[in-house]
């Protein structure tokens, strides 16, 4: 009997989720033993055509990490969806957009302008920009379309399971793979590899009633290592973050940043965190409250560090007048379908 097929792919990601799987240490051998790894471009020299050659729904488990930033990643999301029985958004980038999702404070025009023009060390007198298609004597070169907006995997294709974490901790990755191998997965649509409580449940610090008169950045005070950081004025996203990670950050005196995403009943993680932070301010005076709010330089970054694409608003408002569509016409999407970079054989 043939072994179940396993695929892993990385879209807009840092590679940390690949490491997270490798970090199973000896257990990776059990995984390699159980599964037939049919696609893992980070580790081995797989090609897209290997995936295209597979029959539909033949991949039993696909761990897809990384967000969808460009047309190539979108294409692979669709392709792997076609070919996979179970598609898992593995890691926070695939689940919620992750750190790449922060790019939703900008758009293509703004990013390209910055990267290819404004940065002090860039020399680009001719304003050369990457282009989707470019003719060279040898033929045509293509690049993926760089989208204005980063999306999560589930915003592109239907997804069976979500494994949060930046990256998912070793114990949870192990648990998820073990569950797959033993055929013990919950109903599709579930978040797996995490608890149904918040990080507070994992965190062993002592928690009291919270009344804060000021918020501090972690370097500004020396916190009491045994007490809740939020109580001491250090913004910790723990109460608004799904648990199951074991609160490793808290154990080294760093506040939780929210990488496991929202707790089960929460629709918008940033909105809830914002509400909680504001609610614990110990003041009725509007001026005092303004002062406390003003002292936080980047509320968006705090609330949506990992989940901007998954939030209700998804991205910062694009002012089309500032970023007009026709300026970099070469980068405009092709009519109808997606202009795509493939390694199709000619």
């Amino acid at each position: 009997m043939s072994k179940p097929k396993l695929a892993l792919y990385w879209a807009a990601s840092c590679g940390g989720c690949e490491i997270a799987v490798v970090r199973l240490y000896a257990k990776i051998l059990d995984v390699a033993d159980f599964f037939d790894i049919v696609f893992w471009p980070c580790i081995m020299d797989f090609k897209y055509k290997d995936v295209e050659a597979l029959p539909d729904k033949s991949i039993d488990l696909c761990l897809f990490n990384g967000a969808i930033r460009n047309s190539e990643q979108e294409h692979m999301a669709h392709l792997l969806r076609e070919k996979s029985k179970v598609l898992v958004a593995y890691g926070t980038c695939a689940y919620m957009g992750g750190i790449p999702g922060l790019a939703n404070v900008a758009n293509r025009e703004a990013i390209f302008e910055r990267v290819y023009h404004e940065t002090p060390s860039t020399v680009n007198a001719d304003s050369v920009r990457p282009q989707v298609r470019y003719q060279v004597p040898e033929g045509e070169l293509t690049l993926p379309v760089f989208y204005d907006t980063v999306r999560t995997l589930a915003q592109v294709v239907p997804v069976e399971y979500f494994v949060p974490g930046c990256p998912p901790v070793k114990e949870q990755t192990e648990a998820v793979l073990q569950a797959v191998m033993e055929g013990r997965l919950p109903p599709p649509g579930s978040v797996v590899g995490a608890s149904d409580k918040t990080v507070c449940d994992d965190c062993i610090r002592i928690k009291e009633e919270k009344r804060v008169s000021s918020f501090y950045r972690p370097y500004e005070i020396i916190p009491d290592p045994s007490r809740c950081l939020l109580e001491q004025g250090i913004i910790c996203a723990g109460p608004a973050t799904r648990g199951g990670c074991g609160a490793p950050c808290l154990s080294v005196n760093m506040p939780c940043r929210g990488c496991y995403g929202p707790p089960p009943n929460v629709v918008d993680q940033g909105g809830k965190l914002l509400s909680a932070l504001a609610s614990i301010i110990d003041s009725q005076d509007p001026d005092e409250i303004e002062r406390v709010a003003d002292a936080i330089p980047d509320l968006l970054g705090i609330c949506y560090l990992f989940g901007l694409p998954a939030s209700l608003l998804r991205r910062v408002r694009q002012d089309r007048k500032a970023f007009p569509a026709g300026v970099t016409g070469e980068l405009a999407r092709e009519q109808g379908d997606v202009a795509v970079m493939t390694q199709r054989a000619p």
């Binding site: 940033g270 504001a278 003041s283 009725q284 509007p286 709010a293 968006l300």
Partner: peptide, 23 residues
């Protein structure tokens, strides 16, 4: 008794977030 005071706090924060979001 005090619900609207909590509202004031939350709205102060929300306003800043919305400004960053471009609203």
């Amino acid at each position: 008794s005090e619900g609207n005071y909590k509202t004031t706090r939350r709205i102060a924060f929300l306003r800043k977030l919305l400004a960053q979001m471009g609203i």
